[in-house]
């Protein structure tokens, strides 16, 4: 039986690790060079968070490279494929707003996560700023960018409910987190002349079971790529 703090560290660490890997896939493929640097910067911040968090739970390399898909505890949102640029930005918007509130609460609290949260909250504030600026540009840009941003908001919406499922050992008020998150997302999306999904689609607000190790299809392929070398040469130092 794992200690509560360990499972919480795994959950947050896996979130950061998986999203970092997804952002890393953009290297060499971003729309412009400057944006490539920004995405790589965010990926590096997240990888740093993942290293700290996974080290709290055990050996970071073993945890990253030797666990199977069913042992990962990240939310399904972060494992979603990059899609087009709007998809990546919406995923980033949903997640960085969540991370900012979460780390804000953790930094103000009293838990093993305080030092990490105090450092990470500055990073995720920057990530959020980046995502916000882009959603405003895409939403209020051309008809094409508006349509793509709206498609991405709709497509990823059903993975957001999972963000607010309580995590064992994480001293966070998840109801307050959800309310604050929803208010902020609604405000930003409105300013971007976009709308949050409603109607039947929001029924999936409760979808996602990544915290229980149930993942979506593309996640297995992502792990295969990420873990390939380590599994081919077990025990090697690098």
């Amino acid at each position: 039986m794992k200690e509560p703090a360990t499972s919480a560290a795994l959950a947050l660490g896996d979130d950061a690790l998986v999203l970092s890997h997804r952002l890393g896939e953009w290297a060499g493929h971003a729309p412009v060079l400057e944006e490539e640097v920004a995405l790589a910067n965010i990926a590096l911040d997240l990888l740093g968070q993942a290293r700290t968090l996974l080290s709290l739970a055990g050996d970071e390399d073993e945890l990253a490279f030797l666990r199977e898909e069913r042992q990962f505890r990240n939310v399904q949102l972060v494992e979603q494929p990059n899609g087009d640029f709007a998809h990546t930005i919406v995923r980033q918007l949903y997640f960085s707003l969540y991370q900012q509130s979460l780390y804000g609460q953790l930094a103000a609290g009293d838990s093993p996560f305080v030092p990490l949260a105090a450092k990470a909250v500055k990073e995720v504030t920057y990530h959020r700023d980046h995502a916000e600026h882009w959603i405003l540009r895409l939403g209020d840009g051309t008809a094409e960018s508006h349509a793509r941003a709206q498609t991405a908001l709709d497509a990823l919406w059903r993975f957001t409910g999972e963000l607010f499922q309580p995590v064992e050992g994480l001293p966070v008020d998840f109801d307050a987190l959800r309310d604050g998150w929803l208010a902020e997302v609604t405000a930003v999306v409105g300013r971007a002349t976009l709308t949050l999904p409603d109607g039947p689609r929001s029924g999936a607000w409760t979808a996602g079971a990544g915290r229980q190790g149930i993942h979506t299809e593309s996640f297995g392929r992502m792990l295969a790529e990420m873990q390939h070398l380590h599994r081919s040469h077990p025990g090697a130092t690098w």
């Binding site: 412009v32 060079l33 400057e34 640097v37 920004a38 910067n41 700023d129 980046h130 600026h133 540009r137």
Partner: peptide
């Protein structure tokens, strides 16, 4: 290169 001053600031920071 940046589309406007805000984005230029952010890119410059990175």
């Amino acid at each position: 290169h940046a589309p406007d001053a805000e984005m230029a600031l952010r890119n410059a920071r990175d």
